[in-house]
Simulated scan of single mutants.
Amino acid sequence: MYTFVKFGGSVITDKTDRESADLAVIEALAGAVAAARAADPTLAIVLGHGSGSFGHHYAARYGIHLGTPIDADHTGFALTAAAALRLNRIVVDALLTAGVPAVSLQPSASLSSAHGQITHWEIGPISAALQRRLVPVIHGDVAFDTVQGTAIISTEALLRFLALHSPLRPRRIILVGEAAVYTADPHRDPTAQPIPLIDRTNIAQVLHGAGASRAADVTGGMRSKLELMWQLVETLPDLEVRLIGPDPSLLTAALLGQPLTNGTLIKQ
């Protein structure tokens, strides 16, 4: 049974300050993964993370997500890819320091897209890493796009592709970001209330109220993330998606499949 985890770019970086990694949060989350693996050595984890204030800054500045003609200057593409890799190195090093055998696998080196959607991804190295009890670490990345020239592929899109187009069918997806999905933006509306469960009875209402990111985010913000996860839950009936805040104890508990009193659960 596979578990997919995403460290949100908004919690491992300050998205309002260019290339500002939150090392304390990254190290705490790495420790939580290590604790879960120690408690359950059979855990098979694919870990992804967003680009936060690293990749999103350059992607937005150069419009990489909107496409770049093949004969145009691709400096922005290169800068975006390099920034994403800098954050990836920080995350992987923190995991290694915590005792997690993490290995970085850059998505753009082996995938292609069309209209911003993944059309092919060679996931053999991810499977090989899992067979060896390693933790493959992927990240939101640039892509060469056969239609629009360039694209940005979000971490959620990567996890969705793995879930639907590979043998790595997850039983659980854990998104570490906001403490929960709320009835309104909790940063702007003090009356916003957490939504503990999203299912077919309230998904339309939740999507209607979901907004975009407050900082530079070329992958669409909360609404886009919820739409992708709901599509997965509809396709894979046994899948559970948990959205939790960056509390290490919550992450360890979620990885071990323990009941949680905080966060949002998405299921059919």
Rank of each mutant, 00 (worst) to 15 (best):
T3R: 01
F4M: 11
K6L: 13
G8K: 02
G9T: 07
S10A: 13
T16R: 08
E19S: 06
V25D: 06
I26T: 12
E27A: 15
A28M: 07
A34R: 04
A39C: 04
D40L: 07
D40V: 10
A44L: 09
G48H: 03
S51D: 07
H65I: 08
T68G: 05
P69Q: 05
I70A: 12
A72T: 07
G76L: 08
F77L: 12
A78T: 04
V91Q: 02
V92M: 06
L95M: 14
T97S: 02
P101D: 12
P107S: 08
S108V: 14
S113E: 10
Q117P: 00
T119N: 09
H120T: 14
W121R: 00
I123F: 15
I123Y: 13
L130P: 08
R132Q: 15
L134N: 03
V137Y: 10
I138Y: 05
I138N: 05
H139F: 15
T150S: 14
I153C: 10
E156A: 13
E156T: 03
E156R: 00
A157R: 05
A157Y: 08
L158C: 11
L162Y: 05
A163V: 11
A163C: 12
S166M: 07
L168D: 04
P170F: 13
P170C: 14
R171F: 13
I173K: 01
A180L: 09
V181R: 00
T183K: 04
A184E: 09
D185M: 10
Q193M: 15
Q193K: 08
I198K: 02
D199M: 11
H208C: 12
H208M: 05
G209W: 08
G209T: 09
A210E: 02
A215I: 07
S224A: 15
K225S: 12
L226S: 03
M229W: 04
M229K: 01
M229E: 05
L232S: 03
E234A: 13
P237Y: 13
P237E: 09
D238E: 12
L239P: 07
P246F: 14
P259R: 02
N262A: 15
G263H: 00
K267I: 10
